Simulated scan of single mutants.
Amino acid sequence: MAFDLEGLRAAVAAHGRVTRVVIAAIRGSSPREMGAAMLVWQDGQSGTIGGGALEFQAAEAARAGRLGLSWHALGPELGQCCGGAVTLLTESWDAARIDTVDGTVVARPALPFSGTENGPETLQVSGAPLTVKRLLARARGQGVLPEAQLVGDWMVEPVLRPSRQLWVWGAGHVGRALVNALSPLPDFAITWVDTAPERFPETIPGGVTRLPATRPADLVPYAPKEAEHLVLTYSHELDLELCNRLLRHDFTFAGLIGSATKWARFRSRLAALGHTPQQIDRITCPIGDPALGKHPACIAIGVAARLLRPEQSGITRKELSA
């Protein structure tokens, strides 16, 4: 898990001061991993540290202004069946504090629970320990980001950087369902393309870049060659042109919505455009899991599962990018 700086910045812009609760350490079983976080403000919250009694009590403590480290035995204390224990770090963030983050790693003192809103902020602390300094040096000098972890009395988290570039071609019913399903996942940076602004919904999820273009296929050269693509426009001709351009451009994964009949016709037409059978085989069609049904949400669930387990396509990501 990583520190979602942009998500925190958006929450602070919308709600003012926001409290962030992060799982700093785990012993035994836990409903979420280290680095999982939620944001809490007076009349709402976002994100999750696992739900249940732990999350409810943590949100109440955050609203009461109780900051710092706190320890929770999930079974004896909260009646949860996980059987482990977690350490939570609860911090207050505003725009001024966000501006101090360098954009690579967030490292700061994680002081014991103070019981007051500003307690941990006002105490004097020594400089970062040597272990933390080494983690920061590796991140800045070598680009090796640390995992979220509690190092002594310091919390260290890498800033979220999506590792997968996903281009969704088409903003119809299936495109919307796919973007709604995939946009909450931190690994994906989504670029969403269609032929006109009115093709998109009024509200676009955070982390999604909307690109209206009269000729969408002309945008293919601007996609990173390691990007993944989902082609599902309203036009078979546009779908075909996108497949043609993608095969000439390169990609890590490309999936096309369609039936077996559509794909058979596309294979013939792509061959006529000069692509070999081996090249054409790199495109996956149909996408998703046909057994789930044809409802847009069913297609989105199948596609999301496939993307999250790319080895199930029969072609590994390493092979696709070779």
Results as ranks from 00 to 15, higher is better:
R140M: 06
V174G: 09
E241D: 12
T214E: 12
V18P: 05
E77Y: 01
H236P: 08
T214K: 07
R17T: 11
L123Q: 13
A13E: 14
L219W: 00
I283M: 06
L247Q: 06
D281W: 01
V220E: 09
Q80R: 12
A11Y: 03
A2E: 05
R317Q: 14
I301E: 06
V151A: 03
V168H: 00
P31L: 02
R210N: 07
I49W: 10
E237W: 00
T48E: 04
Q124T: 15
Y234D: 14
Q279H: 02
T122N: 11
S92F: 01
S46Q: 07
S235H: 03
A25Y: 02
G79C: 12
P277I: 06
Q45I: 01
L8G: 04
P197I: 13
L246K: 08
V18L: 13
D218T: 15
N180E: 13
V18F: 11
H15P: 08
A227Y: 02
S183G: 02
A264Y: 00
S163I: 13
A25L: 04
P76S: 15
S321L: 13
I299Q: 09
R140Q: 12
A24K: 02
Q80Y: 05
A36V: 12
E147N: 08
R66L: 10
L150E: 05
R27D: 15
K225N: 08
A110M: 11
V106A: 04
P197N: 08
Q312V: 06
C243W: 02
P216T: 08
V132C: 05
T90K: 12
V179D: 11
N118M: 04
E157P: 02
E117Q: 14
L320D: 07
P120Q: 08
G68E: 11
L89D: 06
I315T: 14
S70T: 14
A25C: 01
R309A: 14
E117M: 09
L242D: 03
P290L: 12
R20C: 05
T122Q: 13
V151I: 09
A254T: 10
A85R: 12
P224G: 07
A85V: 07
A36L: 03
G119A: 03
T195Y: 02
L219K: 02
R248C: 08
